[in-house]
């Protein structure tokens, strides 16, 4: 089962999420992590280095994480408690910027907004209708978006076009080595602003503020869990990898042969809709013979339309 991983820095940020998603502690020394149905959470501690090392430690557990949401507090020239989704994440130290592929508006829209349906570009009945469809089939985004700038130290240079945090860039930098940018989202809630500067900030306020993020985080978790393209590929590869592991356990394959076997089985599955049974593969006493047999099968596969 693939998991959506929530990433927070502080305990106070994690608490409402753990409760909301009914997560149970993952018993592992040195790692504050929780897991539940389809969701896990890691609390990294403050700052970029901690974020990177804790995420790496979590990924080493091979839990089957396929998407990440960094959730936490940030400062900005906005109302306390406002929730934003990051349209970009900028690391102030390195100058690097990431642009996550944002979810469809429908995911972020309020319940009464219209839903997006896919446009059929083959419909030539009317161009005007096409254009109307193209324009109108959009839902309004109830959740605002803006740039998130990650800084090494807390700062009070509040701006209206971005918010400041301390971990988002480390999270995206680490997790983008594991998955693509449509499966890494950043959600922030405003915890300090010019009227309520950091000096007035209290950790006590974090948990109630974080509750504001729950509807968006839940919607993102649902969307990321259901997203079909990634799931299709993951399921497809999962099936193939299971058989590869089984076969290589029975019959030694070199690394190159294992790669070859994997691709042959992928092709077999793509062409036939199912993998070969062990009976079909015959005697598994020679990797060369097996690969030859599969290659012959693939070359002789009928292609008809």
């Amino acid at each position: 089962m693939s998991l959506v991983c929530l990433i927070t820095a502080m305990t106070a940020e994690a608490r409402p999420l753990i409760e909301s998603f009914n997560l149970k502690a993952l018993p592992q020394k040195g790692l504050s992590a929780w897991v539940g149905e389809g969701v896990c959470l890691v609390q990294t501690g403050m700052g970029q280095q901690r974020a990177e090392s804790r995420i790496d430690a979590l990924l080493a557990n091979q839990l089957g994480i396929s998407a990440f949401i960094n959730v936490g507090i940030a400062g900005g020239k906005r109302q306390l408690g406002d929730v934003i989704i990051a349209s970009s994440v900028h690391d102030q130290l390195s100058g690097k910027t990431w642009y996550p592929h944002l979810p469809p508006s429908s995911v972020l829209s309020t319940a009464n907004s219209s839903t997006i349906s896919s446009t059929n570009f083959s419909d030539d009945s009317s161009e005007d209708a096409f254009a109307d469809t193209f324009e109108n089939e959009q839902a309004s985004c109830a959740v605002d978006h803006c740039a998130v700038i990650s800084v090494p130290e807390p700062c009070e240079h509040y701006r209206s076009d971005c918010v400041y945090d301390m971990e988002a860039s480390a999270v995206i930098n680490t997790t983008s080595k594991h998955t693509d940018l449509s499966r890494i989202q950043t959600v922030k809630v405003i915890s300090d602003n010019p009227d309520n500067p950091l000096d007035d900030f209290s950790v006590k306020n974090v948990t109630p503020l974080m509750c504001n993020t729950l509807p968006l985080v839940t919607a993102l978790v649902d969307w990321l869990s259901a997203e079909s393209a990634a799931r299709d590929v993951q399921d497809f590869r999962g099936q193939v990898n299971t058989l590869v592991t089984h076969i290589t356990g029975l019959c030694h394959h070199s690394v190159t042969e294992t790669h070859q076997l994997r691709r042959y089985l992928e092709r077999f599955l793509a062409l036939n809709g199912e993998l070969p049974t062990l009976e079909q593969l015959g005697q598994l006493n020679s990797s060369q013979a097996l690969l030859q047999r599969l290659n012959d099968e693939l070359n002789n596969h009928a292609v008809n339309y």
């Binding site: 592929h101 979810p103 693509d180 393209a229 590929v233």
Partner: peptide
Amino acid sequence: AQNFRQQKQQ
């Protein structure tokens, strides 16, 4: 770290 297939959907 982009996914053409994923982005093609939206």
